[in-house]
Deep mutational scan, measured.
Amino acid sequence: TEYKLVVVGAGGVGKSALTIQLIQNHFVDEYDPTIEDSYRKQVVIDGETCLLDILDTAGQEEYSAMRDQYMRTGEGFLCVFAINNTKSFEDIHQYREQIKRVKDSDDVPMVLVGNKCDLAARTVESRQAQDLARSYGIPYIETSAKTRQGVEDAFYTLVREIRQH
């Protein structure tokens, strides 16, 4: 089974770092803004072998026109913010609204991801993020692309959301 996953969120929150940590098991430290990259990885989730087709997208506003296209083809979405960047957390709402509009559905598989949880300088409390996820009816997972904490959990949870859909 193949799953088309799309990673969305503001610029600099760590979308590529999360994806590369999942696929290649290493942490990319330097920031190089993405336009669009796709990665494929075969994994076993709950005993089922599946192929993850992951689209890593641009957070930069100037590429926002490309969003409709990949939102149409994606089956599930990782909505990523950084726990030390309140603005990126506030941006999640717009991504969710755009996904709902493009998919013409209120019920699209999504996982809210709070990345950079290895950093002490948190400005978005776990509780705020949990409340937001609960209001959307989606899971919330904290990750660190640096330490790998929660990385597999985030992507695998999204696959489970798609399966249950």
Rank of each mutant, 00 (worst) to 15 (best):
T1D: 07
T1E: 06
T1I: 13
E2S: 03
E2L: 06
E2C: 03
Y3G: 02
Y3T: 13
K4W: 02
K4R: 10
K4H: 14
L5G: 01
V6I: 13
V6R: 03
V6E: 00
V6S: 03
V7A: 05
V8H: 05
V8M: 05
G9R: 00
G9Q: 01
A10R: 07
A10P: 08
A10W: 08
G11Q: 12
G12A: 12
G12K: 08
G12L: 12
K15D: 00
K15V: 00
A17N: 12
A17E: 00
L18Y: 02
T19P: 03
I20Q: 04
I20N: 01
I20M: 03
Q21V: 04
L22Y: 07
I23A: 06
Q24T: 14
N25A: 12
N25D: 10
H26S: 13
H26F: 15
F27A: 02
F27D: 00
F27V: 03
V28G: 04
V28Q: 05
V28T: 07
D29S: 05
D29L: 04
E30C: 06
E30S: 04
E30Y: 07
E30A: 04
Y31N: 02
D32A: 03
P33I: 03
T34L: 00
I35W: 04
E36V: 01
E36C: 01
D37E: 01
D37V: 00
D37S: 00
S38Q: 07
Y39K: 00
R40Q: 04
R40F: 05
R40S: 04
R40I: 07
K41R: 11
Q42A: 10
V43E: 07
V44K: 06
V44P: 08
I45H: 05
I45K: 05
D46F: 05
G47C: 05
G47F: 06
E48T: 12
E48P: 05
E48A: 09
T49H: 10
C50W: 12
C50V: 11
C50L: 09
C50F: 09
C50G: 07
L51W: 11
L51P: 07
L52Q: 02
D53F: 00
D53E: 07
I54T: 06
I54N: 02
L55K: 02
L55G: 07
L55W: 11
D56L: 01
D56N: 01
D56H: 00
A58L: 02
A58H: 04
Q60L: 14
E61P: 13
E61N: 15
E62L: 14
E62T: 15
Y63W: 11
R67F: 14
Q69T: 10
Q69A: 12
Q69F: 09
Y70M: 14
Y70A: 11
M71Q: 11
M71I: 09
R72E: 11
T73V: 12
T73K: 07
T73Y: 11
G74F: 08
G74S: 11
G74Q: 10
E75R: 06
E75C: 11
E75L: 07
E75N: 09
G76T: 03
F77W: 05
F77L: 04
F77A: 03
F77Q: 02
F77I: 06
C79E: 01
V80N: 03
V80Y: 02
F81R: 01
F81N: 01
F81P: 01
A82Q: 15
A82Y: 02
I83A: 15
I83D: 10
N84K: 07
N84R: 06
N85T: 07
N85W: 04
T86D: 12
T86G: 10
K87G: 11
K87C: 06
K87Q: 12
S88Q: 09
S88R: 03
F89S: 05
E90Y: 07
E90A: 11
D91A: 15
I92E: 02
H93Q: 15
H93C: 14
Y95L: 14
Y95S: 06
Y95I: 15
R96K: 10
Q98C: 11
Q98F: 15
Q98D: 13
I99D: 02
I99L: 10
I99C: 05
K100V: 09
V102Y: 13
V102T: 07
V102G: 06
K103L: 12
K103Y: 08
K103P: 03
K103Q: 05
D104C: 13
S105D: 06
D106K: 06
D106F: 13
D107W: 10
V108P: 09
V108I: 12
V108A: 07
M110I: 11
M110E: 01
L112I: 12
V113Q: 01
G114S: 08
N115M: 15
N115P: 01
K116S: 14
K116P: 00
C117H: 08
C117Q: 07
C117F: 10
C117G: 12
D118L: 00
A121T: 10
R122L: 11
T123S: 12
T123I: 06
V124H: 09
E125Q: 10
E125V: 08
R127W: 11
Q128E: 11
Q130C: 06
Q130G: 07
Q130T: 08
D131F: 05
L132I: 08
L132S: 05
L132P: 03
A133Y: 05
A133D: 02
A133N: 04
S135T: 06
S135R: 11
Y136C: 10
G137E: 04
G137C: 04
I138F: 06
I138K: 02
I138G: 03
Y140A: 03
I141K: 04
I141E: 05
I141Y: 07
E142H: 03
E142K: 06
E142T: 04
T143V: 14
A145Q: 01
A145V: 07
K146P: 13
T147F: 09
R148I: 13
R148G: 13
R148P: 12
G150Y: 06
G150S: 12
G150T: 12
G150N: 09
G150M: 08
V151S: 11
V151Q: 08
E152N: 09
E152M: 14
E152R: 08
E152K: 13
E152H: 07
E152P: 05
D153W: 06
D153K: 09
A154K: 01
A154N: 01
F155A: 04
Y156W: 11
Y156Q: 15
Y156V: 14
T157C: 08
T157V: 11
L158R: 01
L158T: 02
V159Y: 06
R160I: 03
E161F: 10
E161W: 11
E161M: 14
I162D: 03
I162E: 02
I162S: 04
R163K: 12
R163C: 10
Q164S: 10
Q164I: 04
